[in-house]
C-alpha cells in the first residue's frame, strides 16, 4: 500500500459517501444517472469475485464489501424508494449503456492477463469502470445546472482514479517488474474522460459560480 493508493481509495469512499448523503438527506437522486450506478455495481461485483478466495488484508476485504454494498444500495434506492425514484431524471438518462457492457466484455475476451473466468471478468470490470461515468456526464450536460453535492460526487469520483495513476507510477519505480498495463491504460482513459468536467469544475470554483456544463 502507498499513500497515493490510500488517498485514492479514501477519495473513492468519499465520493460514495457524498452520493449516499445526497440521496439520504434530500431524498432525491435528481442529476444522478441510474445507468452509471448500475454499471458501477456490476464493476464491483465482477471485480471482487476473489472476495472469498484470496484474502489480502482486512482493509482490502472491508473496502470491497463497502463498495459492493453501497453501490447495490444506491441502485436499489433509485429503483424502489418511493421518494427517491420519483426524482430520477428518467427522460434525461438515456445513454445506451448496454453498448458499454458489450464493448467492455468483447475487449476483455481479447485483452486480459490470463484466459480464465475470473481474469476475464476482472479485465471486463476494469474496462467497464473506465467508461461507466459516460451516462452520468451526458446526464449532467443535459440537465444544465448541477447541484453542489452531485458536482462534488463526480469530482471525487474522477480524482480517485487520477490518484491511482500516481500509485502505478510509484509502484513501477519501486519495482520495475510491476506492470499493470490493463489497469493503467484504462485508468488513463477513465481520467481523461473527466477532463472537460474538471475544467468546468475548476472554472466554477475559481469564479465561485454555479457549476455549468455546456450542452
Amino acid at each position: 500500500m502507498n499513500i497515493f493508493r490510500f488517498l485514492g481509495d479514501m477519495t473513492h469512499l468519499i465520493s460514495i459517501l457524498i452520493l449516499l448523503l445526497k440521496i439520504y438527506a434530500t431524498k432525491s437522486c435528481s442529476g444522478i444517472s441510474l445507468k452509471t450506478q448500475e454499471l458501477y455495481a456490476l464493476v464491483f461485483l465482477t471485480r471482487y469475485l476473489d472476495l472469498f478466495t484470496d484474502f489480502i488484508s482486512v482493509y482490502n476485504t472491508v473496502m470491497k464489501l463497502v463498495f459492493i454494498a453501497s453501490s447495490l444500495a444506491i441502485v436499489w434506492c433509485m429503483r424502489n424508494h418511493p421518494l427517491v425514484r420519483r426524482s430520477y431524471d428518467k427522460q434525461l438518462d438515456t445513454f445506451r449503456h448496454y453498448f458499454l457492457l458489450l464493448a467492455s466484455f468483447l475487449l476483455a475476451l481479447l485483452l486480459h492477463e490470463k484466459f480464465a473466468f475470473q481474469e476475464v471478468l476482472w479485465a471486463f470490470s476494469i474496462y467497464l469502470e473506465a467508461v461507466a461515468i459516460l451516462p452520468q456526464l451526458v446526464l449532467l450536460q443535459r440537465s444544465g445546472n448541477v447541484d453542489n453535492l452531485t458536482g462534488q460526487y463526480v469530482f471525487f469520483l474522477g480524482a480517485y482514479r487520477a490518484l491511482y495513476i500516481f500509485n502505478w507510477i510509484y509502484r513501477y519505480f519501486i519495482d520495475p517488474h510491476f506492470t499493470r498495463w490493463i489497469a493503467c491504460v484504462s485508468g488513463l482513459v477513465q481520467t481523461a474522460l473527466y477532463a472537460d468536467f474538471f475544467y468546468y469544475y475548476f472554472i466554477s470554483w475559481k469564479n465561485n459560480a454555479k457549476l455549468q456544463l455546456p450542452a
Partner: peptide
C-alpha cells in the same frame, strides 16, 4: 512461470 498474480488493488 510467474505465480498467479493476485489483484491486490481495489
Amino acid at each position: 512461470e510467474d505465480e498467479d498474480e493476485v489483484h491486490d488493488e481495489l
